[in-house]
Design a protein around this nucleic acid. Structure first.
Lengths: 183, 183
DNA sequence: CCCAAACTGGACCATCGGTCAACTTACGCC
DNA sequence: GGCGTAAGTTGACCGATGGTCCAGTTTGGG
């Protein structure tokens, strides 16, 4: 069980981190500053989240939960039921939308992460895409192509495109690419 | 003009950095250690390369020069002359080969880099791929697709695949993807 | 040979992520 | 309602890092 004050602090820390990320440059958001902004001691932050990576992962996870639910048990075309090709397209649309609304958070996580490809989120997304790809185009090396497609969501590119408000272009481009691949 | 001793130190520093990267974990390769391994003072390293990013970029550039030359003025299919689709395939084969032989260096550069997409190397590769893509498939958003394809070379994925000796799979997968796209 | 410019080295600095031991607080239980 | 204790909190502290600075050394053109 988590004590009430602990839960309150956890939320305060997450909120403060997000706030700092959205108003300051990533390199300016140190653990000290997060603690100060959240109104807690630095020790508390580490006690709660283990390390910087843990903090950022928790932040990403809080933003990603909704999507995971929709994919696992929501209505088609995102959830089960629709043809694989349509689910794929819907999934990438959804992830791009999510990522563009949270670029800073994603970037912070990537930067703090020692092994992106092993993070639970990446693993689950990769498994999902691989599955759909296998169903839609059995002749492909689905596992690999899934990596390639997911690589498009790297925060580098997202930031680059977001700066000029072109995230629609990314969605459209990826969509047409998937379409062409599966034809 | 660069003085003789300065040139000697520059080479020693680059050699030492590479040596350290190949034998130690990336996080263990600090600027102090590089300086010590090269047998020079830390100040010299910074005087020469400005900062960590500059060091790593110089290292990557030294490894990439050969490929750039081959692309600009070497024999087809890598150099000018061959049909765009073939040049594209040849280019990615070459880059993957290069990257797999220098993963550690690439990873170090990416990690030290504040803005990968603006680095001269990325920019020139992106321009090259965009040009070929435009010629081979005018209906695509070449600029964007070029970003997506180049994203496949991220050191994350390269490291992941290299650990199990699967870089051929990457080359093959990317090749089939390009082929499918241009058909 | 001489001297200005280029280069060098390493002590020094601010800052960072992370630890820890002393202290405080919440809450299940009687 | 009080109480004991497990859980939580804190900030001083630590070692390491990237980067600065300047007093001293070296180089090579005139």
């Amino acid at each position: 069980m988590e004590r009430a004050d602990a839960a309150r602090n956890r939320r305060a820390i997450l909120r403060a981190t997000e706030e700092l990320l959205s108003t300051h440059d990533l390199s300016q958001v140190s653990m000290d500053r997060v603690a100060a902004a959240a109104g807690v001691g630095k020790g508390t932050v580490f006690h709660r989240f283990g390390n910087r990576e843990g903090l950022m992962r928790a932040l990403v996870e809080s933003r990603v939960q909704e999507l995971s639910d929709a994919v696992e048990s929501g209505p088609p075309p995102l959830g089960p039921g629709a043809p694989p090709a349509e689910r794929l397209a819907a999934f990438f649309d959804a992830v791009i939308e999510l990522a563009s609304r949270n670029v800073k958070v994603m970037a912070a996580f990537e930067q703090a992460s020692t092994d992106r490809l092993s993070s639970p989120i990446y693993v689950s997304w990769h498994a999902h895409v691989t599955g759909l790809l296998q169903a839609a185009a059995p002749s492909f090396d689905a596992d690999l192509i899934a990596h390639l497609l997911l690589g498009s969501l790297h925060s580098d590119l997202m930031l680059h495109l977001l700066r000029t408000g072109e995230t629609d272009r990314l969605a459209a481009g990826l969509r047409s690419m998937i379409e062409t691949l599966l034809r």
